[in-house]
């Protein structure tokens, strides 16, 4: 039973059917088995938020989830948002507001912000900061990230203030 288990799931709309060891982390499955290296691995114990992905629409730490636990699920990674040539609207806001420097935390920030945007009509700055507080950034001081997500909220109709 510590042998491989069958894992069927969808990632960014694409169905996958693999055999995995039960101890394989979802983050490592995405990066090593599917070559979706946009999901970054920072602390591997649930503190930094860099590996955040959407699991059935909810933001989760992919380092705190076994790949096998995603059986039958829909996973969305940063590769599911936009492409280098065609950024999605949130990614555009990150660029406009200079919300990244080294970029290591950016995929996790984008996935967390995607969750917030999908579940809230608008958010106060305090709520926004609390919502993003599980994602660490060592470059920006967060101001520009908050500005970018605030702008994304403003675009969808709420005033974001």
């Amino acid at each position: 039973m510590s042998g491989k288990h069958r894992l069927q799931l969808r990632v960014n709309g694409v169905a996958h059917d693999r055999e995995v060891e039960p101890r394989l982390l979802l983050s490592d499955f995405l990066r090593d088995e599917l070559d979706l290296t946009g999901t970054h691995v920072g602390c591997e114990h649930g503190v930094c938020g860099a590996c955040t992905v959407l699991l059935n629409g909810d933001s989760v730490r992919s380092c705190l989830c076994l790949a096998i636990q995603a059986e039958g699920s829909e996973v969305t990674t940063v590769e599911g948002l936009g492409s280098v040539d065609q950024l999605n609207s949130l990614q555009e806001k990150f660029r406009e507001h200079h919300a990244l420097q080294c970029g290591f935390c950016t995929p996790g920030m984008l996935m967390t912000a995607t969750d917030l945007l999908s579940k809230n009509k608008q958010m106060s700055d305090e709520e926004l900061r609390e919502g993003l507080s599980g994602n660490l950034c060592r470059c920006t001081g967060y101001e520009h990230i908050v500005s970018a997500v605030r702008a994304a909220f403003a675009d969808k109709g709420g005033d974001g203030s």
């Binding site: 649930g46 938020g49 955040t52 699991l55 909810d58 933001s59 989760v60 730490r61 705190l64 989830c65 967390t112 969750d115 917030l116 609390e130 919502g131 507080s133 599980g134 994602n135």
Partner: peptide, 12 residues
Amino acid sequence: MRHVAHLAIRNR
């Protein structure tokens, strides 16, 4: 519950 860890942890 709003004080429990962060959004992604509370989601799971």
